[in-house]
Design a protein around this nucleic acid. Sequence first.
DNA 1: ATTGGCACTCAGGTGGAGTGAGTGCCAGTG
DNA 2: CACTGGCACTCACTCCACCTGAGTGCCAAT
Lengths: 336, 336
Amino acid sequence: MVSQRGLDVLRAIVQDYVSSREPVGSKSLVDRHGFGVSAATIRNDMAALEEEHLIVAPHTSSGRIPTDKGYRVFVDHLSEVRQLSSTQRQGIERFLGESDDFDDLLARTVRTLSQLTNQVAVVQYPTLGPARVQHLEIVRLGPTRLMSVLITDNGRVEQRLIETRAEVTDEDVSVLRSRLNASIAGKQLTEVEAVLRAASPGQPDLAVVEGALVQALSEQVQANRQSKLVLAGTANLLKTENDFSGSLYPLLDAIEEQVVVLKLLTEMQVAAEVVNVSIGREHANSGLEQTSLVSTGYSSAGEISQVGLLGPTRMDYSGNIAAVQAVARYLSTLLD
Amino acid sequence: MVSQRGLDVLRAIVQDYVSSREPVGSKSLVDRHGFGVSAATIRNDMAALEEEHLIVAPHTSSGRIPTDKGYRVFVDHLSEVRQLSSTQRQGIERFLGESDDFDDLLARTVRTLSQLTNQVAVVQYPTLGPARVQHLEIVRLGPTRLMSVLITDNGRVEQRLIETRAEVTDEDVSVLRSRLNASIAGKQLTEVEAVLRAASPGQPDLAVVEGALVQALSEQVQANRQSKLVLAGTANLLKTENDFSGSLYPLLDAIEEQVVVLKLLTEMQVAAEVVNVSIGREHANSGLEQTSLVSTGYSSAGEISQVGLLGPTRMDYSGNIAAVQAVARYLSTLLD
DNA sequence: ATTGGCACTCAGGTGGAGTGAGTGCCAGTG
DNA sequence: CACTGGCACTCACTCCACCTGAGTGCCAAT
């Protein structure tokens, strides 16, 4: 059983290890934090912590480092969220406030977050969800090539290339544009597919082209479900003192691939306001075993998406949680 | 003076060093490439090459490695472009052919190129240049927030957020949308600003809002000049055996920052078809001293932009040049 | 111009000794 | 019963000395 002092010791171990990156031993522990007891006593407590798999010794007779489970207990019970300084807060607001458009805003978000924390920052694009169709533009790029641009009432823009089997003229495009806009403008994206299928066919000679367009539009609406990711600060993984054993290649590769990170973020999808922390092997995803993911929701036009950061399990959880929270909150106020 | 055999020796040194990553000495040189002479003779040639700063010895009495200047001579005079295998070619065409839209196509391009070469691949977004306005959509996001979406006749889409001082209703937006579209649809982007400034003012009560919109549009048109970059394969920098001395941090940071790379690419802007190679210190840009950039133009709707790759100066120039060329050509055929 | 021979250099690997931070255990104490 | 001081032990790391081998520059001979 782990005593109350045992937990204090765990907290101290995590703090010292995070700041020094060296396994911490009983002696230096009593030196830095004056528990009212001797090193030998602390050693007993440490033995208990090791019993519970909260800490581990990298090799016989060296200091201890926290395990994933140890970090978990630390995050859940032993740390309090440190608040950001007001200058940091202002920095965030100034930098995010200047953005030009949605893409730019998310880009600035991850930049800010990665600079603030020295970790890799990620943000999920919101799904289009309950948005409505504002306008559908069709552009003729060539005799058998069209592009559709779907604009929603909350300012998202999705485009798609279409290869038609038959040749299309500019007039055809005009006709189709009017027809389709008339039928889907103002409709929710989720309804679009049904509306299109139900619509009465237009001129027979355009049927083939119209079919291809409807097909493409449906895909476009579908596609937004599997959302997209923006990230920044991957260079932080290489900061002179890095925490990862073995090659960084699999890690950076996994991050660049995005799919694993995206999956993790999606799983964390819960209420905004709550900050989720997933530590090391808790997410046994290939490449990310040595990292923790700190994320929380932000809301954009009612939709909740995740923004967060990725770093070594040995990270400053208090500071990072605070940073993620602050950025997410401000992002929400900008978007809602 | 460097003899003809001297140049052959240089070629051999580059080839051996690129494939073995070890300084190459006179003995192993005669072993692998049977010049008709003895090692001592080769040593004399190597001394001449060193005299010309084409090769250098990392430490006294070790093998030699090529200098940036040595690579330059190799690229310009000693290497021939190796052609890609037809399966590689087909792979490129299959993967790029499937893309959905312009963004996706460029994303696939860099992915392909980075996988093909194991380097970092980059591609520059084309400037909008001579494109014409197809449609301008205005979306009302809130009482004082609008978003403008500019669609060009070659399928590019640019969006921008606008904060208006006065409140705007949906009706106002409709009015403005019609007015602005009427005046700029079909105009070249370069003309847009002039046209807008010259246009007669509409309803006086909308003047403020219209002013803000016009302002934003002008910026939007301007902004596309400074183009944007897509990249992939940064993980390749960390492949187990990597070539960079010192920390990778400054390098990855510079790449992620994009601005330096963008500047380099822009400077290379010349005719398509020609493959440019910039080697190491030839571009003395902070962070990229140990890298070479191989790039060439691709054309999109008449505009020429650059696509290329970035890797250690010790790279397989022949193969990489071939890959860049093949990808750029196919990209051009898709886009033009 | 080319060659074989020779003395020299130096990075990298190997192995042993020493150091110090840290441990587990145990007997003793308030 | 919780805590303490003491003690023997472990083991990663550093330093140093030594060796090896690939490679060099130079020179006299062809």
